[in-house]
């Protein structure tokens, strides 16, 4: 098979003596939709922080492949915006949109394109960008609210808007942190379908708690279980669910 698009090897990160990430190994392959689960404090958000340049690992390497070759770009040297420009986009656990801007402007600011100061000064929307924005607005079902201030949207709508912003930047890798939080069952299901439809063109990592949702999106894909900052086990959803270690640390405790 091909090379991983993203690989973390032997990564450790300590905060004030607490090992949030401990000798973690993780490989993500092109076009894959990977689900990461784990109890609270397992290090899921910290793991995303390390991948996106928000935190630097104490030891270990994190590499990214911008072509089909083996991963060669060292992400630990780069900062947030450099990593984003390489094509790694992130959606945060708490939806973070530009609350004072309209839905439309939120998407315009996220649209793939030059990010420099002067590009922004002389920026104009061409018709293809406009079409892209229209189709994105339809996709995230905010077409009729495009002039709303993002701050006025419901929690679920903000989640969708943030997913839309993520897509607008056309990343190769999507890191999605708890996308279904605060959504109704129906919205959750639709989110799952959206993510599944993205698989193949994008490589996706989803961190999630909601087991129904995890089951939906894992759909034959791999599930990684994090525990105390390391990978406890990895495999298909059913294998993971029946794994006694997992039941002990996670399902067993959480689902009584």
């Amino acid at each position: 098979m091909s090379h991983p698009i993203l690989q973390a090897e032997d990564v450790t990160k300590t905060y004030d003596g607490f090992r949030a990430i401990n000798a973690l190994n993780f490989y993500l392959f092109p076009g894959e939709l990977r689900t990461v689960i784990g109890p609270n404090g397992a290090g899921k958000s910290t793991f995303f922080d390390l991948l996106t340049g928000r935190a630097k690992p104490d030891t270990g390497t994190i590499r990214y492949a911008d072509s089909d070759a083996a991963p060669s770009i060292d992400l630990t040297d780069l900062n947030e915006y450099e990593i984003q420009r390489l094509g790694i986009g992130r959606k945060f656990q708490t939806p973070s949109v530009f609350a004072e801007h309209t839905v439309f402007t939120n998407l315009v600011l996220s649209l793939k394109g030059p990010r420099g100061v002067f590009a922004s000064l002389f920026h104009r929307l061409d018709s293809s960008a406009r079409d892209r924005l229209d189709s994105l607005l339809k996709l995230i079902r905010l077409d009729d609210k495009r002039h709303w201030k993002a701050g006025l949207l419901s929690h679920g709508e903000k989640q969708w808007l943030e997913i839309g912003m993520l897509l607008a930047s056309e990343p190769r890798v999507l890191l999605v942190d708890e996308p279904a939080a605060g959504m109704t069952d129906e919205e959750t299901h639709r989110t799952g379908e959206l993510l599944l439809s993205l698989r193949g063109q994008h490589s996706i990592v989803v961190v999630e708690h909601d087991m129904t949702f995890v089951k939906q999106i894992s759909d034959g894909g791999r599930v990684t279980v994090l525990h105390q900052g390391s990978v406890l086990c990895e495999g298909k959803f059913d294998d993971v669910q029946s794994n006694p270690k997992v039941r002990e640390v996670y399902l067993g405790r959480g689902k009584h």
Binding site: D49, F92, T94
Partner: peptide, 9 residues
């Protein structure tokens, strides 16, 4: 005081 919470700000 670098932030390291789940939300952004």
């Amino acid at each position: 005081f670098p932030t390291r919470s789940r939300s952004l700000d």
